[in-house]
Design a protein around this nucleic acid. Structure first.
Length: 536
RNA sequence: GCCCCCAUAGCUCAACGGAUAGAGCAUCUGCCUUCUAAGCAGGUAAUCCAGGUUCGAUUCCUGGUGGGGGCACCA
């Protein structure tokens, strides 16, 4: 039985025994007992429920134990914990189902959710920066996790291919083509020299717009290649120009006006994000006094577009440098008449770069930065992705470039990957050791030892870990889990021989168990966009 | 000035308000004639400060201190 099912079953037992409603069982959750405690799972609920039930925690724990009797072996420990021991047979059964049912951990309840996750969305004005790796890792890993759990997920990259920055890019490219320096506020990076050198022969007669279009097109090719090398393939690259062709901003504006959310002041058109909705610190301009749309209006139109495409959950992943935009964007979605729950913005803190002992400040326009491509080529996509995935979005991570390049072998990703490789190796050695790797074991003849039990229980936790990742909008718990599972495996490997022709029953069981470990490790790494090598 | 985020071992990070705060790197001690030592076993080592709430606080609240980011009719 999955942990979620087990938890539900125990919760139902508690509900019936104490005559409670769901609200009173909110904190009812299984957890892992600390190492010095005997038991496979732990419930702290009796302590938490003491006040509401007006009973001593120990008494509640005893009553809960009685309610679970027959189904679970439970023990009560002060100040009111109930510790559960799982039966070997049920563990063996679960391990088998992990192997036989690929979607064992999916939850059908998620299937009705249509999720749009937009991330990276770097401007097509220069090579993709190393820091984009953080957003890319977050978005792609979360997408993979949600998909695995049963959600319908579309990954999307928004391309700002119109506007002032794009014009500047075109002008900068044109200047390079003509052997001049780019405009003062233009793009100074070397990459435009290379691009200029590759311009077609008829570029001499081009106007600025043609230079811009060429530059954006080329840049998009690079961005797509960078993302692919990083293991990220978007379902859609949404061009801002598509939005304008479909009259998106006009429609959004009309909708906002119709809802009475806008007003004119000083020749501009404003959205009452503060005065009407009280969710921002000031009102925001939609149409400037010169008649041009603000970026904000275009962004509202883009989000309206996503809503119209029928998504039930819309997620944006932004760097902390945009966090000030959160209230106005949330206000805008509300202003369009939609539920706040529909729209979620995940903010991740920025990546600080450290080279030697100095913190490196980077600017795309000055052309001084470390590209994602460079990093991936030197460190490898696996190590990069695992490293980014390890950090919760709120952590201010400093990326030590020298360390990442020089000591990539220290990355915990190898520790996890090594589990997969070791298990593959064992299976490859089976024939050589006179063992049939396909032989089934007989559950009736197997009593798992403590290390084997611990591994089987750990495998079950993948489900809850992944749900936690979704709840916290971060894959970092998965990296912790994989490291812990790996440690358990390596320790097991050291203590117990797997292939033993003299003991075919135990050998068959251990191969079965290892197959499941291998499956979970491979699956977990896959959800992080990291490869599971067969040998290292 | 206002807003957001952060502060845990020498370093990089974990820990739905729960039991003796977990890892990796670094460091020290052991372990390769036996399925891969990118490994195992063990040692050293941590919750910024002051209050508060709670049976219980690294976690929640208030006030400090220190750091990062943001406060446009730019995108």
């Amino acid at each position: 039985m999955k942990l979620s099912e087990l938890e539900e079953e125990m919760k139902a037992a508690a509900k019936a025994a104490f005559g409670l409603d769901d609200g009173q069982l909110k904190n009812f959750a299984v957890s892992v007992p600390p190492p010095h405690i005997k038991g496979d799972l732990s419930l702290a609920w009796p302590i938490a429920a003491a006040k509401a039930l007006k009973k001593p925690p120990l008494k509640i724990a005893e009553e809960l134990k009685a309610a679970l009797a027959g189904k679970y072996d439970a023990a009560v420990l002060p100040p009111g914990f109930v510790n559960i021991s799982l039966k070997d047979k049920s563990l063996l059964d679960d391990t088998g189902r992990i192997l036989s049912e690929d979607s064992y951990f999916a939850n059908p309840i998620h299937a009705k959710e249509k999720v749009n996750i937009e991330f990276v969305s770097a401007n097509p004005t220069g090579p993709m920066h190393l820091a984009s790796g953080r957003g890319a890792t977050l978005g792609d890993s979360l997408s993979r996790i949600m998909r695995f759990l049963g959600y319908q997920v579309k990954e999307e990259f928004y391309v700002n291919n119109v506007g002032r920055q794009v014009s500047l890019l075109g002008q900068s490219l044109k200047a390079r083509y003509q052997g001049k320096n780019p405009p003062e506020d233009g793009y100074q990076g070397e990459y435009l020299k290379d691009m200029a050198a590759a311009l077609p022969s008829d570029a001499a007669g081009w106007n600025d717009k043609q230079f811009s279009e060429f530059a954006v097109k080329e840049m998009l090719i690079l961005h797509k290649a960078d993302m692919k090398a990083f293991g990220v393939e978007f379902d859609r690259w949404f061009l801002e120009s598509e939005l304008h062709e479909a009259k998106g901003p006009e429609k959004a504006l009309e909708e906002l006006k119709k809802r009475g959310m806008t007003y004119e002041k000083e020749g501009a058109l404003w959205l009452g994000t503060a005065s009407v909705m009280e969710s921002d610190d000031k009102d925001r301009v939609l149409v400037k006094s010169d008649g041009h749309n603000t970026y904000f209006l275009n962004d509202i139109a883009y989000h309206l577009n996503k809503i119209e495409r029928g998504f039930t959950k819309i997620v944006d992943i932004w760097g902390a440098d945009h966090h000030g935009h959160v209230p106005r964007m949330e206000a805008a979605v509300s202003a369009l008449g939609h539920d706040r729950e529909l729209f979620k913005i995940i903010i991740h803190q920025q990546v600080l770069l450290k080279r030697g002992t100095e913190l490196v400040k980077m600017s795309k326009r000055a052309g001084d930065f470390i590209s994602l491509k460079e990093l991936v080529e030197e460190v490898g996509a696996d190590a990069c992705r695992f490293f980014f995935a390890m950090h919760s979005p709120n952590s201010h991570m400093t990326f030590d470039i020298d360390l990442a390049k020089k000591q990539s072998n220290d990355n915990p990703v190898f520790y996890v990957q090594y589990v997969h490789a070791r298990i593959c190796s064992i299976f490859n050695n089976a024939a050589y050791k006179d063992v049939d790797p396909a032989r089934a074991y007989d559950p009736a003849k197997i009593t798992p030892n403590p290390e084997e039990r611990a591994l089987m229980i750990k495998l079950l936790w993948l489900e809850k870990i992944l749900e936690t990742c979704v709840r916290d909008s971060s894959p970092h718990q998965l990296t912790v889990y994989l490291s812990e599972l790996s440690a358990m495996f390596h320790s097991f490997y050291d203590q117990h021989k797997v292939l033993d022709a003299a003991d075919p029953e135990t050998t068959a069981f251990r191969l079965f168990l290892l197959k499941a470990v291998q499956r979970v490790i491979g699956r977990g790494l896959g959800l992080l966009g990291v490869s599971a090598p067969e040998r290292m």
